[in-house]
């Protein structure tokens, strides 16, 4: 073998060896507060599936907090490969302010990039000593309500809008009554946590409050973890359809060389396996198969969407939660 052929053969062997070498891949999923347990299981299942498919080992790191805070962290430079936040507005903010992915990111995955839905319900103490049945009971004098801060928590914004939408529904779109209702409701809130998980801690572990306005999944998790002898779920007559969305953070994923695996990770949420995990963790699956499997878990109630009542997140955010918005006008720290 002459030296040229030897070099050629050696280079080819080296290239093949490199290609065959399994990679260690790391992803960072920046998510909102109550999804810790969900993504722990999703991550393990996806890693197993990816390993079987490609031979690569993928490790997904999780970061959780109030959705608004998490979005701000990504805008400020936290190099997330994917974001899985509580509401589209916070992901829009990342697209708008940091330009890390296109503004039409919601079109990239089915169901406006929301692989599951949830809603807002109540958690009360065992026996429901204050007789909480619907939203009206939350503004009664002497009822202590736990909900996080809408300025920092996506879940809290859903809570707020669910209450507002209830009043509009009940009063035939009387905005003044809705405003008055929300003002009364927040007068009954003794502590504002920055995120939903902190609010759960306040209600369940610290024993504060009579009723906790909660993500549906978080309420189920609390009952599961702390026992039906301590807390119980109350489903109001009307609530909001929450659609927590997900997207790849293109710029950071490209920088990390993780675009393909990040995309596959989010697509996994829509798979049968992913949807089953979603249902198992008390989120409402999109797929009919998983929805049917978990149908008996979720109580049927009347749900309205943010688009129907508020004209979308941008409008809702601007009117209610931006600085100087309705929430700033009605909320007085106690």
């Amino acid at each position: 073998m002459n030296s040229f052929n030897f070099l050629k053969t050696a280079s080819l062997a080296l290239a093949l060896a490199s290609a065959a070498q399994a990679k260690d891949i790391k992803l960072l999923n920046v998510s909102y507060d109550p999804t810790r347990e969900l993504y722990q299981e999703v991550n393990a299942a996806f890693a197993k599936s990816w390993k079987a498919k490609t031979g690569d080992t993928v490790t997904i790191q999780q970061s959780h907090g109030g959705a608004g805070k998490q979005a701000r962290a990504v805008i400020d430079g936290l190099q997330a490969d994917v974001v899985t936040l509580a509401l589209a507005y916070d992901i829009d903010a990342i697209a708008e302010k940091a330009r890390l992915f296109p503004a039409d990111w919601q079109k990239r995955l089915p169901h406006n990039s929301a692989p599951y839905t949830s809603t807002i319900i109540f958690l009360v103490r065992k026996g429901n000593p204050k007789g909480i049945k619907d939203w009206d009971d939350l503004v009664k004098p002497g009822v202590s309500v736990i909900t996080p801060n809408p300025k920092t928590s996506g879940g809290a914004r859903w809570n707020y809008l669910a209450a507002w939408g209830y009043v509009l529904e009940k009063t035939g779109n009387d905005e003044a009554k809705a405003r008055d209702f929300i003002a009364k409701l927040f007068k009954n809130v003794p502590v504002l946590d920055s995120g939903a998980r902190g609010a759960t801690t306040t209600f369940v572990q610290r024993g504060i409050g009579d009723v906790f306005i909660s993500w549906e999944n978080e309420a189920f998790l609390a009952v599961k973890e702390f026992g039906a002898d301590k807390v119980e779920i109350i489903v109001p007559s009307v609530s909001i359809l929450a659609e927590p969305p997900v997207t790849v953070v293109d710029k950071f994923a490209k920088k990390h060389g993780t675009e393909a695996v990040a995309k596959a990770y989010l697509e996994f949420l829509y798979s049968d396996a992913g949807q089953d995990i979603v249902g198992k963790h008390f989120y409402r699956p999109r797929s009919e198969k998983a929805a049917a499997k978990y149908a008996n878990v979720f109580t049927k109630l009347k749900l309205f969407t943010i688009d129907e009542v508020f004209g979308g997140w941008q409008k809702a955010q601007k009117a209610h939660f931006n600085d100087g918005g309705v929430f700033d006008q009605i909320y007085k720290p106690q």
Binding site: P190, V191, D193, S194, G198, R206, I208
Partner: peptide
């Protein structure tokens, strides 16, 4: 409840 709220508020202040 007041005592618990004060304790929690203190906890949140420290976290903050």
């Amino acid at each position: 409840q007041k005592v618990r709220i004060l304790e929690r508020q203190r906890e949140l202040d420290l976290e903050s």
